[in-house]
Structures are given as structure tokens and as C-alpha cells.
Amino acid sequence: MSTAILPDTLRAGPDPMLPRLATVRRRRRDTSQVWTLDIEDSVVSNEPFVPGQFNMLGVFGVGEVPISLSGDPAVQDQLVHTIRAVGPVSKALVRLKPGEVLGLRGPFGTGWPVSDAVGRDVIVIAGGLGLAPLRPALYRLLAQRERYRSIQLLYGTRSPDDILFRRELLAWRRRHDIAVEITVDHAPADWTGHVGVVTTLVSRSSFDPAQAIAFVCGPEIMMRFAIAALGQAGLADEAIYLSMERNMQCAVGVCGHCQFGPSLVCRDGPVYRHDRVRSFLGVKEL
């Protein structure tokens, strides 16, 4: 092994750990725990983010967390993030009011390969908050609807109260060019929709496995079952993409927290093609 130091590894570069400033423009509540923030970046990028990517959002004096972009990539002056307020930082984030300043780094990570879906049946499977990082992909698909064959969104939540983006889902449901199927684990008496885990929707949906592509995001266990159901329906592992979650702190591959087998989720993910992580997905506590 050589220890030689190459001069070009000592190159100058921007500090990837230094946040820039952003301002909250709008805040709305989606469910009892989930809020969506529209923020305005102080540095307007001329490159749209890729659906599936995430930003690091920080509250000064509290901390920083990775949050997926959940808005339309075509809208460049507003970055939309849908946040479940469960920890100290996410709770502080959703308490920010319009006009308040936060720290922003990103966007980071790999995204959904929307251009690979051209000419194919597209199956989008979301569990819970997993719909948030998939929504930018849905916007992209619907913006050029004619380029794809069927589009189906299969969405599962714990209860009807946990359904995100409800009004938008209802609007999509009225369209004839996207099928939206929603299921809940636990239903009150007045629920007339599907009951059961989201995987049951896969066997009911129809697509041509030879020409389909699937984007899956949700809790790891839900993704494993959804992928198994897609496999049973005949979809190849190479046609299935999933978004992994690990503890991401630096977002640039140098802090080590988001190890997932041989990869770093912030750098090599979060979106992976299933055949590339298949052998590590089932390993407990990896």
C-alpha cells in the first residue's frame, strides 16, 4: 500500500459542514405530529434538486437533522420539507414561524431515477412519512404524464388520521391517469377504504412486470415486504428502488454514522436499486 500524498488531495474547497441561511415562508400542519415547512434558500440554485434527495435543516443552538425534500423540484424558489416532530431538533423546526431563520445544507444523496421510468408502468409504494420523499417524483411523473404507461400510488398509513397531503391525494384520485390506493392498519367505523398493510395492495394492482419500475419508501420492514410482494408479482430486483434510512449527521460521507453494509447512506443512498443492497437488507441490525 502506498502512503504517497497526492498534492491534489490537498485542494481547496468549500466547507461542507457550514450551513447557509434559509427563511421559513409558510408552515402548515399535516397530521398531529407532522408539519410541512416551505423555506426560502438564501442562495438560489439554478439546478433543481433530484426527487428523493434530502437537506440538512438546523435550528441554531439546538441541532441539525436530515429531512427529505417533499415539494415540486420545478418550483425553484421554495424548498418544501415535511417533518415529523419526534426529537428535539424536529420539534424545534416545526415551531419556527414564517420569517424565522434556519440553517440549511444540501441537497444531498441519490434520487429516484424518474427518467428510467419513461415508457414503463410506474408503481410508487409509500408507508407513512415515506410518501414525503416520493412526492417530488410524483410531481415529475405527472408533469409529463404522457411519457409513462400506468402510474399507481399505493399508500399505507397506521390510521386515516395519519394520511399526509390528503387534499392532494383526493385531487389525484379524481384524475384518470393515476391510480391512488390507500390502506390503513387500523380503521375507525366510518372508514370505507382498504384495511391492512400496504403490501396487500401490490397483489391487487395490475402492471406488466416486464415493463414496470417501482419506487418504495417507508419503514424498513414495510419495504422488505413490499419488495417481496413486487418480486412475487414478477418484478425484477433491478426494477425496484428503495430509500434507506440511517443516522445521517454530516451528509457528506465523513462522519460514519450512516453505515449500511459496504455503503454510506448519505453518499451512496438514500435511494438504492434493490439488487445492489439485497444481500444486506435482511441482515438484522446491520
Binding site: T3, A4, T9, L10, P16, V252, V254
Partner: peptide, 22 residues
């Protein structure tokens, strides 16, 4: 010396550079 070369690859050899290490 090899350990330093390894940390060079991790911290300043990738797409992003850790400026404090550099």
C-alpha cells in the same frame, strides 16, 4: 504513516473535503 494516508483518503480524498483536516 499508512493510517495518515487512510485518513487522507477518507477526509480529503473524496468528493467533499474536510477543511479543518486539510
Amino acid at each position: 504513516l499508512h493510517a495518515i494516508a487512510i485518513q487522507d483518503r477518507v477526509l480529503i480524498g473524496g468528493q467533499h473535503v474536510d477543511p479543518s483536516y486539510r
